[in-house]
Design a protein around this nucleic acid. Sequence first.
DNA 1: ATAATATGGTGAT
DNA 2: TCACCCTATTATC
Length: 263
Amino acid sequence: MPEGHTIHRLARDHRSKFAGREVSVVSPQGRFVAADRLNGLVLDDVEAFGKHLLYRFAKEQWVHVHLGLFGTVRTSSAPELPARPTVRMRLANDAWYADLIGPTQCAVIDRDERRSLIARLGPDPLHKDSQPEDAFARVAVSRQSIAQLLMDQRVVAGVGNVYRAEVLFRAGLNPSLPGEELAPETWARLWSDLGKLMRAGVRANRIVTTVPEHRTRPTGSARADDATYVYGRAGEPCRVCGTPVNAAVLAGRRLYWCRRCQR
DNA sequence: ATAATATGGTGAT
DNA sequence: TCACCCTATTATC
């Protein structure tokens, strides 16, 4: 389930398990035709940019992977078990194998394609050297809502529907606030909170945005998942003020917020 | 068995 | 704003 933290975590894991040695590359599903010409090459490195994952092979060839909404990667230790028929790409060495299932994108790209891919993305809160001002430059001149801007990968790379809802809740911001009305300090706070939340997401390999004092639910509660404030909680009482959580579809995605905490 | 849903994105209208 | 692509899981009949 992929927002940027998933991809960065995957890059880190696969770098340590696969990079620097030969790797076998196959496509049980058959749809990743280029598997044949990569099979047996050394995998040099694995990188993440926003929600994009890049496996670098010899001769400046990269496998560009985007998981989309449904894509998953399953990494397991050897010995290999038979792949299910939907496995687009399997990477394997003596110790590990990884199955890529259901990605929207899995294709070999060259240096120029890699460069333009990265160029079209906004700064990524998970990259040390990224520039939040580049994102704010776009936000500050936009009449679109902050909720839409946060999901726009040209503005910020790696934020998805969960982090968007949660970071806006934590900031007490109304999702419909136009970007042009956002103060620079407010953006700075959003950016730093995103970095903090997403780094925690990489560490835990899941999204947790709540602080401990908001995690306890009444005993006997139907749901034990305390990891979010508003995401996926339409109609439930806000964990801070008790007001029922709102939900509405915005640009094709469901947005959740508390109308009292986020004025 | 079938439907509904999901943490994403593109391209046409 | 919609149609569409990708797949697994859970809920409902």
